[in-house]
Write a protein that binds this DNA or RNA. Structure first.
Length: 287
DNA sequence: AATAGTGGCAACCGCCCCTAA
DNA sequence: TTTAGGGGCGGTTGCCACTAT
């Protein structure tokens, strides 16, 4: 157990909490409510900082938490859509998910992000091998424009030199979202909920509808008959227009993408199923 | 069986804002 | 008006368990 000596000579305990510490913290909250965190140390109840106590209560000890329970599909979609609306305001997003903390949402999002980064990296490395000695025909983009796109902030310059990749093109085409979002449905703010411990569990239909342009899927034999993609199109209420992929790609060069304010916009419109699907694409392209 | 890769999670860090003195 | 302390929050790190090779 890590300990750190403070200026006042007292030791601050760090690291995992024990059951005994939890009990002390719970009894403090029972007596005083979830406040006066710093008094827990000043009264000598626990050698923990007020911040540490608050965090422990909020993330683990608070009643009605869904501890150890994976995010459901509905919850995933809500996080994705609320993130698109609010940005990385995890605490705010968490208020719309019953029993979830900001830490839960944050961890979920960063795991998803990491996973996507890995998919893109796999795509770049596998295709750079595959395309050795071949001329690049349809999927070549100006690297400077690609690299300047916020969504590619996690690719280094070497990797960006290899952006002539069908898989990455497919992924990047998902970026082709309208920057000018239609007016979002306002989710009910938490402070408008009367006498309720938790905000309402919004249904998907109440949330802003995603502005995902899936038209790039047209003419792409590999995927436009895929059940997952078809399901996606169904979910997002879109038909595949009669355009060839190549034509569509040319007509939507990445460099012409509208400026997107944050790299996370890349994920904003990205349904969980598509991550799964891209992962199968990249792994199959390695065979 | 050993090792590397990955996901999930808990907890800390640092910054910012608010409020009381 | 200034300033210090508390609390809130997003970002990051580190640990552990599980899985694939």
């Amino acid at each position: 157990m890590a300990r750190q000596k403070q200026n006042d000579g007292a030791y601050i305990r760090k690291g995992p909490w024990t059951a005994e510490e939890d009990e002390v913290l719970i009894s403090h909250v029972k007596r005083n409510g979830p406040r006066d965190w710093s008094s827990i140390r000043s009264k000598g109840l626990l050698p923990r900082t007020g911040k540490s106590c608050r965090l422990r209560w909020v993330n683990k000890l608070r009643p009605n938490l869904k501890t150890g329970c994976k995010f459901s599909g509905e919850e995933e979609r809500m996080v994705i859509q609320l993130q698109a609306q609010f940005g990385n305001k995890w605490a705010k997003i968490a208020t719309y998910l019953q029993g979830r903390t900001d830490n839960d949402v944050k961890n979920f999002w960063s795991a998803r992000r990491k996973r996507f980064e890995r998919i893109l990296q796999k795509s770049t490395s596998s295709n750079s091998q595959k395309n050795k000695g071949k001329s690049l025909v349809h999927h070549e983009f100006p690297v400077d424009k690609v690299s300047s796109h916020p969504s590619n902030c996690f690719l280094n310059s070497e990797e960006l030199g290899m952006v002539d990749l069908p898989d990455l093109v497919k992924a990047n085409q998902l970026l082709n979202v309208e920057a000018e979002q239609q007016p979002m449905l306002e989710a009910t703010p938490i402070n408008m909920i009367p006498s309720s411990d938790f905000p309402p569990h919004l249904s998907l239909s109440q949330l802003p509808q995603p502005q995902l342009d899936l038209s790039f899927l047209s003419g792409c034999k590999e995927i436009d008959q895929d059940p997952i993609v078809l399901n996606l199109l169904d979910v997002f209420g879109q038909d595949i227009p009669p355009l060839g992929l190549e034509e569509n790609v040319q007509g939507n060069k990445l460099g012409e993408l509208k400026d997107l304010s944050t790299p996370d916009i890349f994920f904003d419109e990205f349904p969980p199923e598509m991550l799964d699907y891209l992962e199968t694409l990249t792994s199959s392209s390695e065979l």
